[in-house]
Write a protein that binds this DNA or RNA. Structure first.
Lengths: 184, 184
DNA sequence: ACCTGAACACCGTTCAAGT
DNA sequence: ACCTGAACACCGTTCAAGT
């Protein structure tokens, strides 16, 4: 894993660069053949580096997910629980939404064991769960809603961004967040 | 349209029966070739009866959409505006959700002119808009939310049903509906 | 170690040829 | 009028053969 022959390393980088761009444009169901072609590499080479589509997606969004986790820690320290939780959800939506089909892929990955994408997102789920619990303990978020439900909801709502635009997605998320708050 | 040769009529019925089942099982992206094969008909025959996938989907869910519109009229007469609106949204979600990919297809169809599915759903959009306006006039639903937004939200949330099950979808919809209500 | 293209089994869509 | 399969240009995935 860590030691790669020079040519292999170059191919891997090129594949990732191309895939990042193509997937941002066409979504997570983009043609793998097309990605290999644009990277100037045989289709089998793509499969050697990324045995499944899941592996490729995980490699592409890995960094973004880590940033998401870091942001959670940051918000937890600087903002009150309710604000931290809501801001983090909005941030998550803005990062995940633009990749067409990604929320669905993450959801599938989380319930498929051994999925690299699932493993990658497991930490994110823990982080979210903790932020939620803090906000619920603080009494600002309804105590009867679970984190898996909220994650599923925010994922589905963020997916709207690729169809109806980020503004629509944001407005809908705001209404949902309002429903999440305890009535004073 | 109305006059079909006996064999053509039989083929059309068989295609619709098979398509209804296959699409319920596999979603709106199911293989058209597979549907034709199972219907015991050449692939070109499917295309002759339904020139686009859109036509086929519209033909399949047409009856369901009309039932949806009828239900709206019924609810408007028998229930107070807020209840009528919310019940209709839940009913819509329960009808649309189970078909994987249908909410997305409807959304695309509504913004593509000439789409048979879009034409079919246009009435439904009017009906929903009227129910919303009544509920807003009655003061029970937030006045600052538009019908297209609500439709998009409910469509996205109902789509959850095929991934996480109808119960999850229902719970999430409840939270969203809560966010839609005016705070007393 | 790594790369490659051919191979296989699928698609969606169209079109000439059949009845 | 209507039906049909072949044809074309694509997929995802695997595997034997190359360096």
């Amino acid at each position: 894993m860590t030691e790669l022959r020079a040519d292999a390393r170059r191919n891997r980088e090129e594949l990732l660069d191309v895939a990042r761009q193509v997937i941002r444009e066409q979504g997570v169901d983009a043609s793998l053949r097309d990605i290999a072609r644009r990277a100037g590499v045989g289709i089998a080479t793509l499969y050697r580096h990324f045995p499944t589509r899941d592996d490729l997606i995980a490699a592409i969004i890995g960094e973004g997910i880590q940033r998401l986790n870091a942001r959670a820690a940051e918000l937890a320290e600087t903002k009150p629980p309710g604000e931290a939780f809501e801001e983090w959800l909005s941030y998550m939506a803005s990062r995940i939404g633009p990749y067409h089909g990604l929320p669905g892929a993450i959801h599938d990955a989380l319930t498929t064991d051994g999925s690299p994408l699932g493993i990658l997102c497991a930490d994110m789920m823990d982080v979210g769960d903790r932020l939620l619990t803090r906000a619920q303990t603080d009494g600002v978020i309804r105590p009867d809603v679970t984190w898996p439900d909220i994650f599923t909801a925010v994922a589905a709502i963020s997916a709207i961004a690729t169809q109806s635009g980020p503004d629509t997605s944001t407005r809908i998320l705001d209404v949902y967040l309002d429903g999440l708050r305890t009535n004073p």
